[in-house]
């Protein structure tokens, strides 16, 4: 009983997160400006991190949590560097 509830919910969540990732990717491709693409990449990072958390719930393994933590950190650093680049035209001043 509880297993089937969880299977339905987790599958639904994975489908929704995959759609969300597709929408973020579509906005990233469509632009129209560089800041839209960077924001799209940031949204994609957050969505994929949530997707990994849901994967972890599905398999019951703690490994996905660590991957999600790394994606969150890399996404933060990447977005900050790109925003810096948009502002100044160079990453390191």
């Amino acid at each position: 009983m509880s297993q089937s509830i969880l299977v339905v919910a987790v599958t639904a969540a994975q489908v929704m997160l995959a759609l969300a990732m597709a929408l973020a990717l579509a906005r990233m491709i469509r632009g129209p400006r560089a800041q839209d693409r960077v924001l799209g990449l940031d949204t994609l990072y957050v969505n994929s991190m949530l997707m990994l958390l849901v994967f972890g719930m599905r398999t019951g393994s703690a490994l996905y949590f660590e991957a999600a933590l790394i994606i969150a950190m890399l996404g933060f650093v990447a977005t900050v560097a790109l925003a810096k680049f948009l502002m100044r035209g160079e990453v390191i001043e």
Binding site: A12, A13, M16, L17, M21, L23, L39, G40, T43, V54
Partner: peptide
Amino acid sequence: VVLGAGLTLVGSFGF
């Protein structure tokens, strides 16, 4: 889990 994924989807849809 459905609430969180749904909110994320709405956010990306709005985006």
